[in-house]
Design a protein around this nucleic acid. Structure first.
Lengths: 168, 168
DNA sequence: TTAAACTTTCAGTAATTTTTGAACTTTTGA
DNA sequence: TCAAAAGTTCAAAAATTACTGAAAGTTTAA
């Protein structure tokens, strides 16, 4: 396979994977493009490479920066902004985990705690099942949460940092 | 909070969570409803509770069965089919991991292996970055894959089964 | 074999999400 | 201070995804 074909396939696959996990396809594609680009790119270059509009490019780049996956760079003597993606897979995974935890896990734990307080009749089977399901999911969510928190500050833990070395 | 309100919030939240992770909202809501229902429910009951059409209910139930999260039940003397969800959170997580691995991870690993074969000029910076990114992601994907495989047959491993007891 | 009870399918419609592009804002250098 | 170049915004359009409902299919019992 040629490089140019490989690049296209990579971008396409990364976009598809993103959309299967609730991430905007274009955003994932821009990320993919930056991942395989040695130098930082301009908005123009991204627009052209992926044939998408200026507005779309701009918005998705901001989102990627918001996710901590891409950073703006300025070259001295130039007005233009350049965009660069961190290529360390472990950092990428870390960032994504961190963001999704904040955006999704934290709110769901908050809700589950509220739902644990629901009052009802202990003889009501609906009530018993509700309580039991909420309790179990809550427990799982809290464990995942605790694990993520530990992972996200792995440096401090000899246990996790040795586990992670296996992955690196 | 009252039970009826809690049930609605739970269903809503599960649906939202699903959609954030690339799972059809209605499918997640049906799953949520079954999770908090002590008895298996009929199509009619689900339709009514969630105010969705028969066709929608039927298709999403099939998908849930396909994901291994819901099972059909038959009550003797009755024509109707009843649907029941496994309420063990660990089984749910397991099933989801198993299915997503099969549907998404396996194909991406296949592609990454192909992309590892891309030929090019070692002096080309684009080529070098491409190779390096593909290689790193491939490594991560394979490690995740191996870990999932181990987890999915956790019973056989004293190490993982003791880790999992923490989560249960 | 018929009919009632239930399930499945899918073309058309509706809802949601994403993208465009042109107007607007900001920055910079002359 | 101005105009060119770059960056941002967002209403409307396009694309995608999900849902409905009615017709077709299946199963069961008499």
């Amino acid at each position: 396979m040629e490089l140019s074909e490989g690049r296209l396939k990579f971008i396409e696959a990364w976009g598809k994977l993103g959309s299967e996990w609730g991430i905007n396809r274009t955003m994932a594609q821009i990320h993919a493009l930056l991942l395989i680009s040695p130098e930082a790119l301009t908005t123009e270059e991204i627009m052209e490479e992926l044939t998408i509009s200026r507005g779309n490019t701009n918005m998705n780049l901001r989102d990627l920066i918001g996710w901590g996956l891409v950073e703006k760079q300025h070259k001295s003597g130039e007005r233009k902004e350049y965009f660069y993606a961190d290529k360390d897979t472990w950092n990428i995974a870390r960032q994504v985990a961190k963001e999704r935890k904040k955006r999704e896990l934290d709110p769901i734990i908050k809700l589950l705690n509220e739902l644990s307080e629901v009052k009802g009749d202990d003889k009501d089977r609906n009530y018993k099942t509700f309580r039991s399901s909420v309790k179990d999911i809550n427990k799982l969510a809290k464990n995942v949460n605790k694990t993520l928190e530990t992972m996200l500050k792995a440096e401090e833990s000899w246990f996790w940092s040795s586990i992670f070395k296996i992955f690196k």
